[in-house]
Each structure stands twice: as structure tokens, then as C-alpha cells.
Amino acid sequence: MPELYVGDRHWSVATGSNLLDALNQAGVAVPFSCRAGSCHACLVRCQGEVLDQQPDALNPAQRHDGWRLACQCQVVDDLRVEAFDPVRDGMAAEVVSADWLTASVLRLRLLPERGLRYRAGQHLVLWAGQVARPYSLASLPQEDQFLEFHLDCRLPGAFSNAARQLKAGDRLRLGELRGGALQYDPDWQLRPMWLLASGTGLGPLWGVLREALRQDHQGAIRVIHLAHDAEGHYLAEPLAALAASHPNVTVELWTAAQLDQALAQLRLVSRQTQALLCGHPVSVEAFAKRLFLAGLPRNQLLADVFLPRG
């Protein structure tokens, strides 16, 4: 049976064991979120061979340095593992503000200790102590002086519970910056663009929308935000202000009760439309299905799904 080594500890595990499970079951606290190789919260450094089910999830430089996603690895041989240390491997960031936009949506703004190069729509792993969660950036690079995140705190969770207590001046650590599926391409400038979001999936699309306008997007931009109820439209006023100042932007605010009827009425004006979707898997699937039925080519849809923890 293979041996796992972590610091001064070592123990035997069954061949083929999931690395994340083997570590957490032995009391080595490795954070995780999606278990699908998407969030990168379970990053660990390995010395030894593992069976990696998603070898392309990390870039070549990371893999050369031994980094692996524990949730995607099976133990097949003796292995020494070093967990990601946010103090050693991360970047410090100070809380600029923590404002409640609704009773359940927290807008968190952070100032990193040094400049961070990113694009609108990317993800960043946030660490509060030894608790980590990936969140999409809602800020606009080169314009906003802070990193902005929209946190859905409806349900209890280790990170959301910690986030509720944050105040200006507190410090967090930043983990890995991820690519994310959502981005604005200048080649779309003359094409219609639809941005469809549910819940805090609006966060990264808020950044993408402002990036498109900053690059003087000429095509029509249709923004649709789905929320459980009217109170959930947490960016209604800023979106209305953008629409008022940009004639090519329209905003629609849907509630869950209106979803089926609203989807049935969706019609494409042009098959050149580019669609960006973000939010809960069920909502994203419903949006995508309707768009495909309406005739949208599959290669003109980009989606970022907020996978539930588990």
C-alpha cells in the first residue's frame, strides 16, 4: 500500500485513493469547494507520482513545481505532500470595505499588497485563516483601485461565516488567480452581446459589461439578471445608470416566478449574437437550452457555473 508523507507524519492508504479524501480523513485540512477541478482551492505540492485526472487544469510551470489539484488525483505510489500555505504562498490583501447590498449579498473590496494583473471575469481564491473559497472578480482592471467580489451569504459555510465578520482594515490572503470562462473579446465589438446571470453570477458579468463599454462596444448589449425575488436584484440601480448613459445597453430583471414565461419569449435578433452565462448550474442550463433552441450556435456561448460545495 502506498505511504503518504506530510511533514513528520506518514500513513498507509489504499492504492487508488482520492488524494483530497486521504488527506482530510487523516486530519490534514485541505480546503475544497467544487471537487471538479474547477475552483483550485485544494492545491497541494507533491513529490512523487499520482494519477492525475485533469493534467491540463494547471499550467506547465505549476505542474513542473509539483502543484496538483488534490481532488483530481489518485494515490498510486509513495507520495510526499505539502499543502498550500496562504501565509507562505499567498498574497496579503486589506479589506477596503465590506458592504451588504442586500440581506444576503456582501460586496467585498480588497486592496492587495502589490499590483495584480487580471482581466474582468477571472476567479481568485480567497483565504480567511485556513478557510479558502474561490470567487469571481467583479472589478474592472486598470480602472478600479480595488478587487471586488460579490459573496452570496444566504447559506451558512465556513468562509461565508467568516466573511460576515469582516470590516475595513482586516486582512485576508489571496491564492491562485484563475482564467475563468468569461471574458470580453474586442473582435465582438459590432456583434450583439447577451449577458445572462443568476444570483451573484452577475458579479463577473458586471466586470465584463464595463470592460465591453470601456472598449466602446458598438453592438447591442442585453443584460438579464435572474433573482429569487425583486430584492435579489442587488445591482439594479448601477445597471439602470449604465443603461441610461449607453443607448446600446438594455437591462431586464427577472424573478424565479417569471422565469419560464420569460425564457419562452426569448428570440435571437441575430445569429451573430455572443452570449455569456454565469450562475447556478440549473439556471445556466435553463438559459443555455433556450438559447440553443432559439438558434444560437454553440461556439457563441461561454458559461461559468458556480458549482455548489460538495
Rank of each mutant, 00 (worst) to 15 (best):
Q47H: 12
T15F: 01
D21E: 15
T200Q: 03
S17N: 05
R109K: 10
A227K: 01
G37H: 03
P186C: 09
C39K: 09
R45Q: 15
F306Q: 05
V75K: 02
A240P: 12
V282K: 11
L172I: 04
D229K: 01
R164H: 11
L147H: 06
Q47G: 07
G219V: 04
G27E: 06
L177D: 02
M1A: 13
A163W: 07
L137C: 09
V28F: 05
Q53N: 13
Q258M: 09
F287W: 13
I221R: 01
Q218P: 02
L69M: 08
E3L: 14
L137Y: 11
Q142E: 15
F292P: 00
D78W: 07
R107Y: 04
V81Y: 02
G207S: 02
D304Q: 12
F159P: 04
T15P: 12
L19P: 07
A128F: 10
L151P: 05
S38R: 08
S12N: 03
F149I: 08
R68N: 05
N59V: 09
A92G: 14
R114L: 06
D52A: 01
S136W: 05
W254R: 06
G219S: 08
E237N: 06
A244Y: 00
I221P: 09
R173E: 04
Q53D: 11
Q261W: 03
N248K: 13
G121M: 01
S33E: 13
F84Y: 14
V6N: 06
D77H: 11
G180L: 05
L182N: 07
D8C: 07
V50T: 00
R267P: 03
I224H: 08
D187T: 11
W254A: 07
G27S: 04
T250A: 15
D52M: 04
L302K: 09
M193R: 08
G129F: 06
Q183S: 14
L110Q: 08
F287A: 10
W194D: 06
A41G: 03
E285D: 13
G129S: 06
L195P: 04
I224Y: 09
P86R: 08
A275V: 13
A26S: 14
C39Y: 11
L155H: 14
C278G: 03
N248M: 06
R210I: 07
A93G: 11
A303Q: 14
L205D: 08
S38P: 00
A227H: 01
Q215H: 12
N59I: 03
L190N: 13
T102A: 05
T273V: 08
Q183L: 14
L177A: 12
L51P: 00
S136G: 09
R171W: 05
A286F: 00
Q130S: 15
L235V: 10
P192N: 04
V44N: 02
R173Q: 15
D78E: 12
K167M: 11
L235H: 10
P86Y: 02
P204T: 03
N248Y: 00
L101E: 12
A168T: 15
L172G: 05
S17D: 12
W194L: 15
L43P: 04
Q130A: 15
R80C: 08
G201E: 05
W100E: 09
M193K: 02
R114Q: 14
T250V: 14
S104Q: 15
R35C: 05
Q218V: 00
L126T: 10
P156D: 13
Y184L: 09
D99V: 14
K167N: 10
A230P: 00
M193D: 01
R117C: 09
L166Q: 08
T273C: 12
A220F: 01
